[in-house]
């Protein structure tokens, strides 16, 4: 009972690069470019339940790219797709329920898509990503926060977090026993083109 989302952002590279005080910091031009989100990324989610605990899991299959603009972080763009059929929770009956018409309805809506519309830098290595999330036939604006965690010439990693209200996407089964908020906690690794 949750949904997902997911983008990845590009943010702060600008700043990190700009604070060239660090001898090891690569140049901004190095960071700019196009990245593919690679399979080592972790798309984790959790939904709290009444009385403590809850459901947590991840998605096995996803794909996406991001374009980092070295001059103006606001011009960076993130695109991300994930395939809810690949949801994993450790309990087959819960996975079956999540795939069913009660939640993702993967038979009719096999893909969930996020496309950023606005990226705003919020700190030295953090940014806010706003974008359109499309899931189960509904498209809405959502926000995620991103933090740059690793960076070298070939790869870049962000920690991306955000909460989605699942009832907005016609996935309200299990309320109020299970929280309406699906919390995403993702490690997104990009591989430079």
């Amino acid at each position: 009972m949750k949904q997902f989302y997911g983008p990845c952002l590009a943010a702060c590279v600008l700043v990190l690069a700009a604070t060239s005080a660090e001898a090891r910091a690569p140049s901004l031009d190095d960071a700019a470019g196009r990245y593919d989100i690679d399979g080592s990324s972790q798309i984790n989610f959790s939904v709290a339940q009444t009385g403590g605990g809850g459901i947590s899991g991840k998605f096995g299959k996803f794909s996406g790219t991001f374009q980092l603009d070295g001059k103006d972080i606001r011009k960076s763009v993130v695109e991300f797709s994930l395939f809810p059929d690949t949801v994993q929770t450790g309990e087959p009956r819960i996975e079956k329920f999540l795939r069913s018409s009660a939640i993702f309805d993967t038979a009719n809506h096999p893909e969930i898509v996020f496309r950023s519309t606005k990226i705003t830098q919020t700190g030295e290595d953090t940014a806010e990503i706003e974008g359109k999330l499309t899931a189960k036939g509904t498209t809405r604006t959502e926000h995620f926060s991103a933090k740059l965690t690793k960076w070298n010439r070939r790869t870049i990693s962000f920690q991306i977090e955000g909460g989605i209200y699942r009832d907005h996407y016609n996935m309200s089964a299990g309320l109020p026993i299970y929280s309406n908020i699906v919390q995403f906690d993702m490690t997104v690794n990009g591989q430079k083109h």
Binding site: Q49, T50, E91, R93, P176, I177
Partner: peptide
Amino acid sequence: STLNIPTLFFNRVLIP
């Protein structure tokens, strides 16, 4: 049950 679904009495009171 390994599903560990809480029993929330008429959506109001949690029964352990």
